[in-house]
Simulated assay, not measured.
Amino acid sequence: MSIPADLKYTKSHEWAKLNADGTVTVGITHHAQDLLGDMVFVETPAVGRKLNAGEECAVVESVKAASDVYAPIAGEVVAANAAVEAAPEAINKDAHAAWMFTLKPDNAADLDSLLDAAAYQALVESEAH
């Protein structure tokens, strides 16, 4: 299973990447897509929407189940990935490349409260037992 070291993670299986311009790109983890199976539908949040950390903001639906996606940190949505809405299976091909939305964080330091790759790996392993 792929857990890139340059990303931060949530206990609800979202990844967050700090971009050079200070924005944060968000998607679901490889582990999450693996549990859900073949993606058939993705709904991203509207650009301009203000999100609180932990707020339900998007939906992924697979042949097995629908699942909410939560904002890892507070901020304003500045981009939504229409390509992943048009082709949800992109998440199954590469969950860490198929981003869902980008936000401008209220406080970039909030990323420090998320899990690093090692902590996320430990979480995934603890859930498997």
Rank of each mutant, 00 (worst) to 15 (best):
L51T: 02
N19P: 02
Q33W: 03
L36I: 00
M100S: 02
V59S: 09
D6R: 15
E125K: 12
S12Y: 06
S67T: 10
E61V: 05
L7D: 02
F41G: 03
A80Q: 05
A98S: 11
A97D: 14
V78L: 10
A20I: 04
P45E: 05
P88Q: 07
A79H: 14
P105K: 09
V26F: 05
K93L: 13
H96E: 11
L7V: 08
D112K: 13
A79L: 13
I91R: 12
G37N: 10
K8I: 00
L123E: 15
D116R: 05
V63H: 06
Q121M: 00
T44E: 08
D110C: 09
V42S: 01
A95C: 08
D112L: 07
A86F: 09
E55T: 04
V26A: 02
S12K: 13
N92L: 10
F41M: 04
K93M: 09
A117P: 12
A79C: 11
T10M: 10
G37Q: 02
H13A: 04
E89K: 14
A119W: 01
A83K: 14
K50C: 04
P72L: 11
T44P: 00
A58D: 02
T102S: 12
L123D: 11
M1K: 13
A53S: 14
D6Q: 15
A71Q: 01
N92E: 11
A108E: 10
K50E: 15
G37K: 10
E89R: 10
D112P: 00
I28N: 00
A82V: 10
E76N: 04
A65F: 02
K8S: 13
V124M: 04
A118G: 00
G37F: 09
S126V: 01
V63L: 11
V60K: 08
S62I: 07
K64F: 00
A90V: 07
C57V: 09
E127F: 06
K104A: 15
